[in-house]
Nucleic acid binder design. Structure first.
Lengths: 330, 330
DNA sequence: CTGTTAGCGCCTTCAA
DNA sequence: TTGAAGGCGCTAACAG
């Protein structure tokens, strides 16, 4: 009933061989005599020996863990992307080391640095960090894959095609006869929010020329969707479609419209972005982003780089799909 | 432009001091001459030195990471509990090492063991593993907190008060005049599912004596809720209330009832368990489980044990709240 | 206040 | 096929 667990040396002593042999036997090396291996395995079993992953990592310079740095995400998005990563990671025998990155850039850099020596590579999702901040927070010797970050820092990454997604939404609404569209934007500084906003303006110029597009500021949170509707009504603006920059705000919009007795979709159509599970239940027309796949692909690319060729610096695009539901009926 | 990163020795060389001084200076030890400290800090900065957490852990026998072993969870629950843990963990300067545990007990044990040497303690959520399996999968020297596991193995843990939650639901329904209640149970072998089922039978015996309670098997997934309704109708059973063992099945139930043109709540009341965000949107009466808090409390208790007194073996109870919404109106 | 030295637990040449 | 020895990067006595 020893409380301290057995080390490789204990096993060696019990098996009456050297630690080198224990190491070889337990790691399936070829040149080990069957008898020796048997003795080692038996000894390990009676001692309840479990290799010390930390020591192993140090000596092999390989942790088999990958670090994930995420901002404070809303429920669905977070669980989906982590699920995707976990799926891929556990299939390849790696672990995931999580680190939430709070808004503060200094803290973010600190969080990233504190992973050196614990992980073999990094997946960083930092939509609000600027290119410069990110660049010198990332240790130069640690392979990293960026997910939805500013893509001009010459690192491997993935980017959602926000412009195309929003364009599909606008086209869909215009096809349905809507013209007076309003965009509820995400927080300034967030790259996805920025691209969706730009995409909206561009698409409006193309599909509804002559119409003055309206943009209301939001922050990706549900409450700001409701606030946006309040603002719109207070200003007395006419509108027949609201293009929210994400699903949560779209839900807030819908709640506020219902409260104001404005019929959806008859009077006003509503769309979101992301396609979180809630969207399906509430019949929200939105843009589907394959979140879990994105996570899995990021991991696959990182591990691939770790084990084979080094990381290439290009940014892969994640395509989206327009999902039409009931909030944009005619 | 060196690719290999600097070690403490490089810093020592540049600062012209010993590695011990570097270590002391960088870790804020008191007995270091200001000049020395300044030289060390400067050298570290010019070299872009970042301490190697792995080496540090090995020598201090402390990783400042805690391992989390979770089963395959559905979105909401997963993200909520991880969020709660992360909140607590990052406030205390620790990291979270994730490991999804798949159904297979052997794989689960393997996953747990592979964390030795990487973490200082473990949080394990294993509602489907039996006491014995869990007990010998857990390394004896690794502090562990169990969340919603079988509680008879003498380990620290947390348990949701399932019986009380279901009792509150039954009482609420009976108060509303419902008598012919049906329970859609979770998967057998799952401890929460078991307790909810038992709790249902007990509560029925108490609050609706003389009524024969009906239990239909489910598996916690949405589809099984719909299936249950189908079964019920096929058997021609009369019922005016459905008590699902979790929210997802309740949603399936609601969808099936709507499809069958059975009015909710007029003809049939529906309740869930967990209070995932979806429940609020759909007006589902349910039992709120403070999931994030549970995660945070588990972490707090574990880290507290790591840094102060050792872990006590008692199981703390997590209280629930009945949340009445529209699916149980009269 | 500072440097030297010995590990932490494991893997891996290098000889035998 | 096996053992001895060095080292991964860092911390912690122990002397000076």
């Amino acid at each position: 009933m020893r409380s301290a667990s057995a080390t490789i040396r204990d096993v060696a002593r019990v098996a009456e061989v050297s630690v080198a042999s224990v190491s070889r036997a337990l790691n399936g090396h070829s040149s080990v005599h069957p008898d020796t291996r048997a003795r080692v395995v038996a000894a390990a079993k009676t001692l309840g020996y479990v290799p010390h992953a930390g020591a192993r990592s140090l000596s092999m310079a390989r942790t088999h863990a990958i670090g994930v740095v995420l901002p404070d995400l809303h429920g669905e998005f977070f669980s989906e992307i982590v699920r995707g990563m976990d799926r891929e990671v556990s299939a390849r025998g790696y672990h995931l080391l999580l680190s939430n990155m709070h808004a503060d850039a200094a803290l973010a850099a600190q969080a990233i640095r504190s992973m050196r020596g614990r992980v073999d590579g990094l997946i960083v999702m930092a939509p609000q960090l600027d290119a410069e901040g990110l660049d010198d927070a990332l240790p130069p010797d640690l392979p990293a894959v960026l997910v939805n970050a500013h893509d001009d820092i010459g690192r491997a990454g993935f980017r959602v095609d926000n412009a195309a997604g929003i364009a599909a939404v606008v086209r869909h609404l215009v096809d349905g006869g809507r013209r007076k569209l309003v965009h509820v934007a995400g927080p300034s500084g967030n790259i996805d929010a920025g691209e969706r906003r730009e995409g909206f303006l561009t698409a409006m110029a193309e599909h509804a020329p002559g119409v003055e597009p309206v943009v209301i500021e939001g922050d990706f949170r549900e409450a700001s969707g409701a606030t946006a509707v309040g603002l719109l009504r207070a200003r007395g603006l006419a509108f027949d479609g609201i293009v929210a920059a994400n699903d949560m705000m779209a839900l807030g919009v819908m709640a506020a419209l219902r409260e104001a007795d404005i019929a959806v979709p008859r009077a006003v159509a509503v769309t979101g972005f992301d396609d979180v599970p809630l969207a399906r239940y509430l019949g929200l027309t939105t843009v589907r982003v394959p979140i879990a796949d994105m996570g899995a692909r990021a991991v696959a690319r990182l591990i691939g780089a770790l084990e084979d060729a080094p990381l290439t610096d290009d940014v892969e695009t994640i395509d989206t799909d327009l999902v039409v539901r009931t909030t944009t009926g005619s």
